[in-house]
Amino acid sequence: MNMISPPEELNAKDFASDQEVRWCPGCGDYAILKTMQKTLPEIGARPENTVFVSGIGCSSRFPYYMSTYGFHTIHGRAPAIASGVKLSNPELDVWIITGDGDGLSIGGNHMLHVLRRNVNVQVLLFNNEIYGLTKGQYSPTSKPGLRTPSSPLGSIDSPISPCAFALGANARFVARAIDIAHKPLSSVLKRAHAHKGASFVEIFQNCVVFNDQTFSDFTDKKTGADNQIHVEHGTPLTWGKDNQYGLLIKPGTLELQKVTIGEDGVTESDILVHDETNRTMATMLAAMEGPDFPVALGVLFCDPGTPYEEAVRAVPKAPGKNVKQLLASGKTWTVD
């Protein structure tokens, strides 16, 4: 009799491939890679059951550096390929690695559909607000006015907010994290992994070469605390070095308002409590930006529904159905 031995404990090294990592020195991708390699063993992932699917771009080299299964595909199409993988084998743990250009420009259509269908995959969108691999052109998330080789007079495009896009596409899990903030990123990855259905995670990723410090207003270690809020379900929406700021709904409107606790008679009990199952609240949180508001991080929205692959595979193969039976089915006649 075969005894099934419990799988041995894995660590970060077990998820690192033997390939030399070739991102620019100082790239935020290194930090994300490290966090992923550390997080996977913590959630009990197995390399053989884990698949990373990516498109094209700097971020999309990610699968080569993981010792799991990996498929570096074509520009923008990772969500479609990953959908095929997951529908074919729902047992697999499928991660999509994409960027702002790959996932929201050329692949915007597929992103919309993988989210609204609710395929049980984790989508990690590394947002650096620039095209890195093609040497620095503006992307769909670039700030207006950004001067790049293809926008010498400054970008005139209106940027898209990845999380607002995901919420608009009816994504059922939307979260945000910063590349180098290991702990919060790791906990967001764990939540995304645990969520049944499509999980969308925007990771603010610094491109040191073409768009350095684009997020420094809220990611800077010294000054960032006053400009970022870590939202947590059931907890008041407060932030700041001393947790002195809070959010509430401005009376008589459907707008958020930044308040200081202790000023103008505001107490902590007045502060809005985060409800991650509320899409409207998530949409308002996702839309916040400086300088008037902090940038919201953590799980903005989580409201599970039936994963797509379960619905697709709801009809099991019926006994006795095969080619022979098919050929003789329906209207036939015999010539004697």
Binding site: T73, A80, V85, S88, V312, V315, L326
Partner: peptide, 22 residues
């Protein structure tokens, strides 16, 4: 019920890409 996975994709590209994923 013959055990076929049938996926109507969002476009032609996604259609073939899903088949490649499969």
């Amino acid at each position: 019920d013959y055990g076929i996975v049938n996926f109507q994709a969002e476009d032609e590209i996604a259609a073939i890409c899903s088949a490649i994923g499969a």
